[in-house]
Write a protein that binds this DNA or RNA. Structure first.
Lengths: 157, 157
DNA sequence: CATTAAGTTCAATTTGTTTTGAACTTAATA
DNA sequence: TATTAAGTTCAAAACAAATTGAACTTAATG
């Protein structure tokens, strides 16, 4: 694996960390993105990432579980191969964005816990409304993507 | 401080963790949200959260730095007091959502690193377009909030 | 059915992060 | 100017998360 690709793999690790996932998860996914092979074996991943079997085992498991990669098996070959799933982008986002409703609830709850009304109460009310609204808007945005993605991609590229 | 409020403070800690900030940062902010006082002293915070001076010092500093709280001082009183800032909600969100453009770049870069074109290349292209588009849409969404917040709040509450 | 290749599991270790606490700074008061 | 209250700093301790590696499982092959 050349240096540029290894650097890229690290960059993916950091990106996934931003998403709240483990760095190693991002590395494995990043490698599968740029590997130029239809599927990659467990041991290839282990070697490229210089990690232990245990680490690769738990990481690939997690990636399969969240639907980012899938396993491939071949007759007459005991190895397991992995490839990235054709992940539905809208779903990928909405899974990560579902905390807005939760935020709205927490902020609302805060307002109810207060024993007096003040500027902060007002802010809590507005903030709860805001995050609830944001959650809805993002859902709509994802619908829009579904309907218009062909046009958006054509326009953008 | 009653049990319900302490539980709430913990809940805020976890919420902030989701945002990639430290749990203690969320705790202090949560306390200031529900404290029923115009401003709270350094030592009050320390006591309610059962934490060390060092911990409160670095946490309040961080919260001031990111603009979530502000200090209040009074003549004839050497103490520092803290209160939540009237944070502009749109700004609060856009600061957290600026990673979409970064994502788009990383995905695009991945496509360029590949030595062949395949289904994954296509996905990388689409994903890069998607995240770039999402970044723009969120900016628009925030503009919409600015223009219509009064109506949105009225409708929602 | 014994052997071996391929992964999994999990206790122990390594690595990274958070928190403490004691020494230090700063500035207000006596 | 000495004292003291209020915070800050940062090295060490506590805690938490990620990683290893060796023993274990599983299933394919000779």
């Amino acid at each position: 694996m050349n240096k540029k690709k290894l650097t890229y793999i690290e960059e993916c690790g950091l990106m996934f960390e931003q998403l709240g996932l483990a760095r190693m998860v991002g590395r494995v996914f990043g490698y599968l993105l740029i590997c130029d092979e239809d599927a990659v074996s467990f041991d290839q991943i282990r070697e490229v990432l210089s990690a232990s079997k245990g680490s690769i085992s738990s990481t690939t498991k997690q990636l399969v579980q969240i639907g980012f990669i899938e396993t491939v098996s071949l007759p007459g070959d005991r190895k397991t191969y992995f490839k990235v799933t054709d992940i539905e982008l809208g779903k990928m986002l909405s899974q990560r964005m579902n905390f807005f409703e939760k935020f709205a609830e927490v902020l609302s709850k805060g307002r109810n816990l207060k024993n007096r009304e003040d500027e902060v109460s007002d802010w809590l009310r507005d903030a709860a409304v805001f995050y609830s609204w944001v959650g809805e808007e993002i859902e709509q945005m994802i619908q829009k993507w579904h309907h218009e993605k062909e046009n958006i991609i054509k326009q953008k590229e």
